[in-house]
């Protein structure tokens, strides 16, 4: 159970050999990315990133970033791609480019069992979401700019506050919510999952069409050869592509 922190890679974030592909992920978004007991970042996103690298036959370095700064870091050339379950949105497309989607995301509202909350009623109570995420922009549309929306730097922190009872509900992405509900039987999904047509893609810099195309080819490759299905089944029991 050695817990060497991910710091080292970041500390030495000096220019890496040109061929090494630097991929950013988050590290607080289980089961897509989380820091395990050994201090390594693991999860679905990381496995997909590694599979893509193997397909492209490129050396890869995984860098953990805080969500808030993950896009600015890409734009500023701190790494070359973001594989962090990032929703493809019009706003983000102004700043970065996306590959084809690698899975579809839904939103859910989580609350304590028997809370009597409804999706339409979230504006009346304190609702949490992760800062700078698709969930927070959706929640903001629902509750308005002046609603009681609490923003957290990580999804994990918002789960913790929901559990503690600081907030009545949170808007979360679907798969992480299911994962969390497994060990939190007192909580439930309120109503149906919310389909906002959210597609998850890999972000690259706007001037980096070459990498985007290479990633798209590799993505098709790992779906076709069954690697994707295998990884997905391992995490979710089903192919989420």
């Amino acid at each position: 159970m050695k817990k060497t922190l991910i710091a080292l890679a970041l500390l030495a974030a000096s220019p890496v050999a040109a061929e090494t592909l630097r991929i950013a992920t988050e590290g607080a978004f289980p089961p897509f990315s989380e820091i395990n007991a050994n201090g390594e970042v693991v999860g679905f996103d990381i496995d997909i990133a590694k599979a893509l690298c193997a397909k492209m036959e490129r050396e890869c370095e995984i860098i953990a970033m805080d969500w808030d700064g993950i896009i600015p870091g890409l734009v500023n050339d701190k790494y070359d791609a973001i594989v962090a379950s990032m929703s493809i949105t019009e706003e983000r497309k102004q700043t970065v480019d996306f590959t084809n989607p690698y899975y579809s995301n839904y939103l859910v509202l989580l609350a304590k069992k028997g809370s009597g909350l409804t999706v339409d009623g979230i504006a009346q109570q304190a609702v949490g979401a992760q800062r700078a995420s698709i969930s927070s922009s959706w929640a903001e549309e629902q509750v308005g700019a002046r609603g009681d929306l609490r923003l957290y730097d990580t999804l994990t922190a918002s789960f913790t506050d929901l559990e503690a009872g600081r907030i009545d509900s949170i808007v979360s992405d679907y798969f992480p919510a299911l994962d969390w509900l497994k060990d939190h039987p007192d909580f439930e999904v309120v109503g149906d999952r919310i389909d906002i047509g959210d597609q998850i893609g890999i972000a690259v810099r706007k001037d980096d069409a070459e990498l985007r195309d290479a990633l798209n080819v590799a993505l098709e490759g790992i779906v076709a050869d069954g690697t994707y299905g295998q990884i997905s089944t391992g995490y979710f029991g089903t192919d989420i592509h």
């Binding site: 970041l10 500390l11 030495a12 500023n76």
Partner: peptide, 8 residues
């Protein structure tokens, strides 16, 4: 060209 500034 740009120069990379690590976060440290």
């Amino acid at each position: 060209g740009g120069i990379e500034v690590p976060k440290f």
